[in-house]
Amino acid sequence: MTVLPTGPGGRRALSLAVLILLQAACAAFFLGDVLIDFEATAANDLAHVWVEGVVSLALVAAIVLQLIELRHVMQRTERAEQGIRAARGEMQALIGQFFDDWALTPAERDVALLVLKGIDNEGIAALRGTAAGTVRAQTAAVYGKAGVDGRAQLLSLFMEELFADDSPDDRAPTARTGSGNG
């Protein structure tokens, strides 16, 4: 269970919320006291009570502004999360597109994905329960079909996509890596 937020936006929202509530408790206390003092005070001391009252109202105004700020922080966090989610989804679709285009077999797709995640050949062999030699053959096949000469170049294909800022429709792998199946 995640009780506390993890992202920077979430943490900021939480500390702002705590701050608001502490101030609200104080404001209520002052206002209640002002009400009681107002009645119990002789006319010549009323100035003091008025000052207290004005200070309380200023506190209330500050709280309202902070509530509005909290709302904005939460909206910004939500938008950022949506952006990350969209980017993640797009990246996944893009990787799938490349793999389709290179006509990878299901086993090769799995291996290629693990390569992209930065796992070395022994790790992949252990994860998939196959021999290291099998993984070497599969990665070689992937590199061959992708037209790259190794892990680093394969990664850079996708990095290039991340930094390209053309519209998604122009990102068909064939258009960029002509060597695809050849």
């Binding site: 404001a27 209520a28 709280i63």
Partner: peptide, 23 residues
């Protein structure tokens, strides 16, 4: 007892404001 009661007042007041401008 009064301090805790005032705290409740402040908390509920903020919640009511949040009911207007919150998510």
């Amino acid at each position: 007892h009064e301090v805790a009661g005032y705290a409740v007042a402040g908390l509920v007041a903020v919640r009511l404001a949040w009911g207007l401008i919150g998510p």
